[in-house]
Nucleic acid binder design. Structure first.
Lengths: 348, 348
DNA sequence: TACTGCTGTTTGATCGATCAAATTGCGGTG
DNA sequence: CACCGCAATTTGATCGATCAAACAGCAGTA
């Protein structure tokens, strides 16, 4: 007992050869229906499972994605990566792929890990998060012909449409545009934007969403908008200070939209309950304190990443050269989650 | 070019056979030093990496740990699991192990995944989080002789010392005991405990830490302690309400210690800036708002889990039957992180 | 009859490593 | 000098699957 069954065992029970069993699993179309049923019955009877390592050795494919787990994302928003990771694992599972983790100290070290995992045939594609301009990682992957997809668009103009660079991203512009529009629709006029210092790919994109919504509303002048456009590094205390400074300057504020939940929480502490604040990322904290926020549909992001990598249905990683008509990237639209702010309301 | 080098290639360059190369990698003691150096030079020159799948096929070991990524931990504290995951990945890397993720809908489904991953030789040990009394998962793993370790002690009395059940946990009693002691040392007397409803393994353990510290202080009666002992389901709003109710009842409170950062944040909102509050888990939120908290040393937990599984140094998973003198579990002591509460102070 | 074309199935070789057994070299001993 | 024991290294077999090519069976065609 106890020895796991192999294709040979299944073949013996079903009265066919190894290869036929293999065909039932991998190319069912080749096998006569009657035979296929017999084999399938034998598989069920023996509880046969293909031996992943043996298959990988032969096919030189691991059916595994590698993803770097960051040492600790910046404060509150780290949760976003984790939710993405979960969504990715789930979607990958559905396609028969596994997700393997690794850590790295810096981009160079990460490249070293790429090499290690690729050479050991541990993974056959990578999912990257948080790419930046002139990222050495994507360059290396492209040069070495390793399939990958990034969560986050490449912010350099050249890279953006490089067909070898697959990417998925959330449309921050749209998120802030919607949030701002919602507040305008509620009759708020002087809506401030609390974001990060320029230049910041994601940050500037979100800022643009706010600004465009405000400009198409048209009631505030460019100068007035400039006054409502705040920048500070991410953090609750920083957000609070930035907004406090604005209020102290005497500028009236009807509402605030933010580039992150950390900033939003800070803003909330500064403005109190009567002025609506909308954050970004819809982190657990936002939910906990009842803060409205822009939710990134990470399920869609994960599904999109896999679709770019594998095509709409497949479970085979073929690399960027598959079909030149396939889409190369996908922009996912976030949506607004409005809340009553019950937990913090009434604090002051 | 482009074909990855194999043991044969390395052997050719070094002027030895495959097996000698293999020995250099796996049993260096068998190889004459001079030969070993030649082989190592060849390995470096060719950039040789052993093919993980080939090795696994032969040895029937995957050098991979499986861990379930939960659908979304309860609110704020989800971050704890994520930090553990990171620590685990890092420590596993150091021992040449990989971490593979999977998802499951419920314990039964998780067992199905165990089977799948084990049969496919994808992983050879599992790390479980959040075990509960009479957990079918640990039972299945024990019965089927699959090595595993849990983060979280089994709360059933029988299971606690089952030598086949390896576990690591954080000493919540000690964490609350220290937090309470710290506040007592600062001259606070009427320290409330805000925790979860009984019965809760972790929750009751933490409560006991507070209670023991208060009792050995001795200045409050049992009845007074009972009045300061609060229970509510986890959440910011719930924590705030529970504490508000206590204050409304006229009971004076000098400080609050909590079973979670969510509850602590709620408490903080209820009591304001002058009364110190200490949370649990030291989540990013606690850091963001400047809340004191009990930090779980997840590095130690992860390292401990691997040590139980593999022994102090090894990279081989041997299962629970290794040596009967090895330790079966480990209790890690958390430590207090005190903060000034700069972000929330002054809100009221 | 012999030959072609097709479908369904089987056999031989292979992926890259390790295990187990065989082999070589060599100093020591009766 | 033949032989033993030991250390260092090599050779043959194997892990479980898939690929590539061969093969059997059968219909259609000349």
């Amino acid at each position: 007992m106890s020895q796991l069954p192999t294709v040979v065992d299944v073949g013996r029970v079903a009265g066919v050869s190894r290869q036929t069993v293999s065909n039932v699993l991998n190319s069912p179309g080749l096998v006569k229906p009657a035979t296929r049923e017999r084999v399938e019955a034998a598989i069920a009877q023996l509880g046969y499972r293909p031996h992943a390592s043996a298959r990988r050795l032969r096919t030189q494919k691991s059916s595994t994605l590698g993803i770097r787990l960051d040492p600790m994302q910046n404060g509150i928003s780290g949760a976003v990566l984790d939710r993405f990771l979960h969504a990715l694992t789930e979607k990958a599972d559905q396609r028969g792929l596994r997700v393997m983790l690794f850590t790295a100290l810096d981009p160079e070290d990460e490249i070293r890990q790429f090499k290690r995992l690729r050479d050991g045939a541990d993974v056959d594609a990578f999912v990257l998060t948080a790419t930046f301009h002139g990222d050495p990682r994507t360059e290396w992957l492209i040069e070495n012909n390793v399939p990958f997809v990034t969560f986050g668009r490449p912010w350099g103009i050249d890279d953006m449409n490089d067909p070898r660079h697959l990417w998925v991203d959330v449309d921050g512009w749209s998120g802030l545009h919607e949030a701002t529009g919602h507040l305008l629709g509620e009759g708020r006029l002087r809506i401030a934007y609390l974001g990060w210092p320029r230049p910041s790919g994601t940050g500037d994109d979100r800022r643009r969403g706010w600004r465009d919504a405000m400009e198409s509303d048209g009631r505030l002048s460019a100068a007035e908008l400039d006054a409502l456009d705040l920048s500070t590094v991410d953090g609750v205390a920083q957000g609070r200070e930035a907004l406090q400074a604005l209020l102290d300057s005497g500028t009236p504020v009807d509402a605030v939209v933010c580039a992150s939940d950390s900033l939003a929480l800070g803003a909330l502490l500064a403005v109190g309950a009567d002025i609506p604040v909308i954050g970004y990322d819809n982190t657990p904290v936002a939910e906990a304190v009842g803060l409205s926020s822009v939710e990134q549909p990470l399920d869609e992001v994960a599904a999109g990443a896999l679709e770019l990598l594998l095509g709409p249905t497949g479970g085979e990683i073929v690399g960027w050269s598959s079909s030149s008509t396939d889409p190369r990237h996908r922009l996912v639209t976030p949506h607004l989650v409005m809340r009553e702010r019950s937990a913090i309301t009434g604090v002051r």
